[in-house]
Design a protein around this nucleic acid. Structure first.
Length: 229
DNA sequence: GCGACAG
DNA sequence: ATCTTGTCGC
């Protein structure tokens, strides 16, 4: 589960925001961009977490789809309690522990992880998708529904168009139009994938809706499971 | 100093 | 994130 010896498991549960930020600063340099051929991706896991009103409970879900057919081939959901407050930029410390638990219950090994949130498009260039990708040593990217850091020109109205998301002079992601005439999603790499591959994959995974299917499925599963508690 | 701030 | 229905438009 922790494939990188440079990551001390004890650090994965920082006791306070300052320690969490320091950990992100330390791990950010380990992120690598690698070319990935979307056509050769077989299984994609979508990750999402739903919170109960009042913030006392959550359900983390991982749903694996065939990248080819978009059929669900496996899924897992776990109920838990938040162990870290919501702090913009430290989102991962809240969601990663239960997500890893859900991922650990999968019976298949996903090729790529699609995360609800950001990767490099983050104040310290180490968002949720980077945490997931680095900890699992697998390709991972993030899909955000609203911009977090950086600015992007509005992409052309037709599905498939995109513009660079730029923060402090560097390209940290893309605003991608997954549906014509609908507001874009924000794609950024997490680890072991590149922006072009993440963009094409996001588009392939979102043929009919704005949000890529794996994440939509994970959202639905976590929501349904929470409602059933 | 002030506002903004993934889910 | 969540509290919340119907409604307009493709």
């Amino acid at each position: 589960m922790n494939a990188d010896p440079r990551i001390d498991p004890a650090d994965l549960r920082p006791s306070d925001p300052a320690a969490a930020r320091a950990l992100q600063d330390r791990l950010a340099p380990l992120v690598r961009a690698e070319p990935v051929d979307p056509g050769r991706v077989s299984l994609v896991a979508g990750l999402d977490v739903t919170y109960a009103p009042g913030d006392d409970r959550l359900v983390a879900a991982a749903v694996v789809l065939s990248a080819q057919t978009l059929e669900v081939v496996d899924s897992a959901a776990v109920a838990a309690e938040p162990r870290f407050p919501y702090v913009p930029g430290l989102f991962a410390f809240r969601e990663v522990p239960p997500l890893l638990e859900a991922i650990g219950r999968l019976r298949v090994a996903p090729d790529v992880f699609a995360c609800d949130g950001f990767g490099l498009a983050h104040p310290r260039r180490f968002g949720l998708a980077c945490h997931i990708g680095l900890l699992l040593d697998r390709p991972a990217f993030g899909i955000g529904k609203s911009p977090f850091v950086g600015t992007a020109e509005p992409p052309a109205e037709e599905r498939g168009s995109w513009t660079p998301l730029i923060d402090a002079g560097e390209v940290v992601g893309r605003a991608v139009r997954t549906r014509s005439g609908v507001k874009p999603v924000y794609v950024s790499i997490g680890h072991r994938i590149d922006l072009a591959g993440a963009t094409e994959l996001a588009l392939r995974l979102a043929p009919n809706y704005r949000v890529p299917e794996p994440i939509r499925r994970a959202d639905r599963l976590s929501r349904d499971r929470l409602a059933a508690l």
